[in-house]
Design a protein around this nucleic acid. Sequence first.
RNA 1: GCGCCAGUAGCUCAGCUGGAUAGAGCGUCGGCCUCCGGAGCCGAAGGUCGUGGGUUCGAAUCCCGCCUGGCGCACCA
Length: 534
Amino acid sequence: MRLGASVSAAAVELERPRDPAHGDVATNLALTLAKSLTQKPRAVAERLVAALELPQGLVREIAVAGPGFINFFLAEEQFASVVAAVLAAGARYGRSDAGAGKPVNVEFVSANPTGPLHVGHGRQAALGDAIAALLEWTGWQVTREFYYNDGGVQIVNLARSVQARIQELRGRTVPLPEGGYHGEYIREIGERYLARHLEDPEGADLEAVRRFAVRELREEQDRDLQALGVTFDVYFLESSLYASSKVEKTLRQLVAAGHTYEKDGAVWLKTTDFGDDKDRVMRKRAEKGGDYTYFLPDVAYHVDKWERGFSRAINVQGADHHSTVTRVRIGLQALDMGIPTAYPEYVLHQMVTVMKGGEEMKISKRAGSYLTVRELVDEVGRDAVRYFFLMRRGDSHLVFDVDLAKSQTEENPVFYVQMAHARMSGIFRVASRAPDAVVPQGADVGMLHQPEELELMKELAEFPAMVAGAAQALEPHRLTGYLEGLARITHAWYHKYRVLGEPEETARLVLAAAVRRVLGNGLGLLGISAPDRM
RNA sequence: GCGCCAGUAGCUCAGCUGGAUAGAGCGUCGGCCUCCGGAGCCGAAGGUCGUGGGUUCGAAUCCCGCCUGGCGCACCA
């Protein structure tokens, strides 16, 4: 083409217009070229269209519209072909390989073993697991990792809290330590400790109490995660960083790199050299116990991730911990090890408010001051919990409507999407056919011309790009939004047309199988069941 | 005071990395309906995208100021 400007293929942006009247694919190429050509965008568009050579049978119509968009209307056969593609790929439809098998570490939940998981952890568990799954779907080799801060003062507080409850059980009233844990579960741990440690009837052995309490709570958290259906590949203990001297080694390296100093008996890292607003203490002065602040083991931990070969690491955290982001990154920079400045990546999520009967649910019987994940799962079920935690952007506060999550109506988005899947399955049940065994051969999908049918095909075609986009942006909520949209068209189609006993039966069965497949793949990716009947 | 996040329909929220007339669900209003599978279907009204500037062919989206709300600003994690 001679236009007086050079255009590389990569610079040509194609998009799917919102408005169907603007075609199936559109490009703004003429608008971006107009300036350098000093011509009107529409004129440029006309020349582009005139010069365009496209393969036969691909496009039905090309139009120049609006300020200078070029809109392409695809031939209907193009839509029909996607149905065959879905069925051929089956459970793999939607997968791609942008990650090329490279390793990525996704760290999430990472709760201290000091109590049951609360609803904020639940959001994080759903989010982290979905992000991990999205990365797997786009070709990354994912490790799901849980980091236990089992080394700090809060663990000592936990042990002392249990000791205090043990004293109470022995008939003595002892005040809880400052910063202690108040939940009913602390007393339960005390009871179990007494039952199993007959050699220590007073709970005098603080170290034994600590070990027991941590193990009990880790098991409890495991049960919480099981209730959500979330599993991890690696449980990383902060204490192991001390055992392997990696914390000390990191400190030595930071000192050697010249970004530290001593003041008031404490060791500081000059984080201000890297843009922080004040320097941070790495080792407390002797009067404060002389041990490390959380910050140094955090840095050591990420060095460890890097050295384990994770050139990419993603941390899912509550936004209340966002101040750690810059500090951990600065710590890694100060080591001068060639770790990228944006390592690790962070996905921060806002708080969760749980509403029931128009009132906020805050208090848990067992945990005391906060509502636990398990209580929520018991109340509304795993699928609804996962879906509701995923259907909003992490950046926005999440209002969890328990009544809606429990409702068996189409107002409930989980129910709505699952129902679409169940309806597609129902057709096959009535037809006594196995939906997975349906093959496109012999079915003329091209005979389906109803607007809902073409819309369904377009939507099915979008799925892989949508998954890829959600994975790249680390935004699972795009997938829930997509599924609701697909379910909407599915319901509309289902209500308006019959499948069985119609002349289009064979073709529609193939379409139904493809729709069912994509709904199932999407739900499965998010860890939500896709029932065949409800 | 400083930093991060948010502010879009009455409510809950999308808006695909700067595109065309800003969308969905619920709620409201007006009509249908009982069908492979359930309170289902169709349509309508409803917006100064917090606010004031700026950048450009074009801004909810990018930049600056301000307002409101949330979360942080420890020798706690």
